[in-house]
Design a protein around this nucleic acid. Structure first.
Lengths: 190, 190
DNA sequence: TATTGAAGTTGAACTTGTTCAACTATTTTC
DNA sequence: GAAAATAGTTGAACAAGTTCAACTTCAATA
C-alpha cells in the first residue's frame, strides 16, 4: 500500500479509527519528483502539503546577499511545506528541491481544510505534530547559539546519519550556517 | 474582566461560540508573579501553560559552559511554557523568570487535556497558534544565519520595541546569541 | 573519451565576535 | 544613605569563521 508509511506516521501521533485512517489517506495522492526538480520555488504560493515516502528534499531560502540557507532536510517520514505561504496564501520565501529521485504524498490546500472539517481528530494530530516541531526548532536555536560550528557538525552527522550521507558539503554547510570552505577545514581537523 | 485579553487573543485565531469562550476561560486562573521570581526552573517538570496578561518574562536555558541562552521574551499576549516538558512529563531544560511584577492566566496540565476534550475547537485554536509559532522560529533561524549581530540587534529593537526597552543589555545579548561586551560595542557604533 | 562544470581543498589576509581584565555607572539592600 | 552587588564600557589579545583565489578531484554529458 502506498499509504502505509503515512498511516504508520499518523498512528504514532494520534488514535484514528479504521474509518478515519482510510478517509485521511484518501486525501493524499502520490507524486514522483525527479532529482534536482523543485516542488516549490521562492515566490510561488505553496498550494500543498507533502509527506515524503521516498528520497530526500532540501528546504532552503536564498537571502539578499545571495547565500543559500537551508532550513531543513526532509527524508522519508518528514513533512514538506511552507506553512506561512500555505496558511496565508502569500508568496513563499522557500525553495523545496529533491536531492534524489523521490516520492511524496500530496494534499492540496483546499483538501487540507476539508480534511480538518471531516476528520476532527486531524486537528489533534497536527496540533501534536506541530508541538513536536516547535520543540525541535527551539533546540536548534539553542544549539546555534551555544555550540561551535564543529560541535554543530558533529551533532548533525551523529543525529541524522542517513540524511548526512546523502548531502554534498555545500548543502550541509548551508544547514549549519557556515561556509563550505570552513566545513572543509573542520572535517580535516577531526 | 480578567479574561478579556485571553478572549481577545482566542478570537484572533479561532471562531468560538459564546459558550465555548466562557468554558475556555473558566480553565484559566490568574496568578501574580513578582519581579525576578521563577515560574519554572530548569529540572522541574512544567505542569502548566500560561498566558501573560501583564508584565514580561524571559525564557532561557543555561548551557554546559554556564552561558545563559534566551529562547524568547513573553510580554502581554504571549504564551509561557516548556512544550517538551509539559507534553512528555520530563524535566524542563528551561527557566521562566519574571522581568517585572507580572500576571499570568494559568491552566494546569490536567485541565489542558480536559479542555481539548470538552472544547473540540480548542484543538484548532492551538493548531493554528502552533503553526504561527513554527513560522516565527523558522524565520529566527534564517535571521541567525544570514544577518550579522548588528543587523539582528536592529531587527530586534525595531520589531519588538516595547520588549526591548524593558531589558538589560545582558538579557538582550543572550537573546541575540552574542556577549554583552560585544553588544555594548555594537551600540556604540550606531 | 574528451570536455565541461560543479564540488571539495588549501592558504593567506581579513572580519566578526570572544575573552579577560580593569574601570565606571547604576541599582539593590541593609 | 552607605555598602554591596549588578550592569554597562572600553581596550588589547585572541579565536572563530569568512573571503577570495588558485588548485584538485570528481561526476555529468556531448
Amino acid at each position: 500500500m502506498i499509504h502505509d508509511l503515512l498511516l504508520n506516521h499518523i498512528n504514532k501521533n494520534a488514535k484514528f479509527s479504521k474509518v478515519e485512517q482510510e478517509e485521511f489517506c484518501r486525501f493524499f495522492q502520490k507524486k514522483a519528483i525527479l532529482k534536482k526538480q523543485f516542488i516549490l520555488e521562492q515566490g510561488q504560493v505553496c498550494k500543498f502539503e507533502g509527506f515524503v515516502t521516498k528520497g530526500c528534499f532540501r528546504i532552503f531560502t536564498i537571502d539578499k546577499k545571495g547565500n543559500e540557507n537551508t532550513l531543513y532536510f526532509a527524508a522519508k517520514d518528514w513533512w514538506l511545506m511552507d506553512i506561512d505561504s500555505f496558511m496565508n496564501h502569500k508568496p513563499s520565501e522557500l525553495n523545496i528541491q529533491a536531492l534524489e529521485d523521490s516520492e511524496v504524498l500530496i494534499i492540496t490546500q483546499k483538501d487540507k481544510l476539508t480534511l480538518y472539517d471531516t476528520i476532527p481528530n486531524a486537528e489533534k494530530l497536527f496540533r501534536i505534530m506541530f508541538q513536536k516541531s516547535i520543540v525541535a526548532w527551539q533546540r536548534r536555536i539553542i544549539r546555534n547559539h551555544s555550540l561551535t560550528a564543529k560541535e554543530r557538525y558533529s551533532h548533525f552527522i551523529t543525529n541524522y546519519p542517513e540524511i548526512a550521507t546523502k548531502l554534498t558539503d555545500r548543502q550541509t554547510s548551508s544547514y549549519l550556517g557556515i561556509t563550505h570552505e570552513f566545513l572543509s577545514k573542520i572535517k580535516k581537523q577531526s
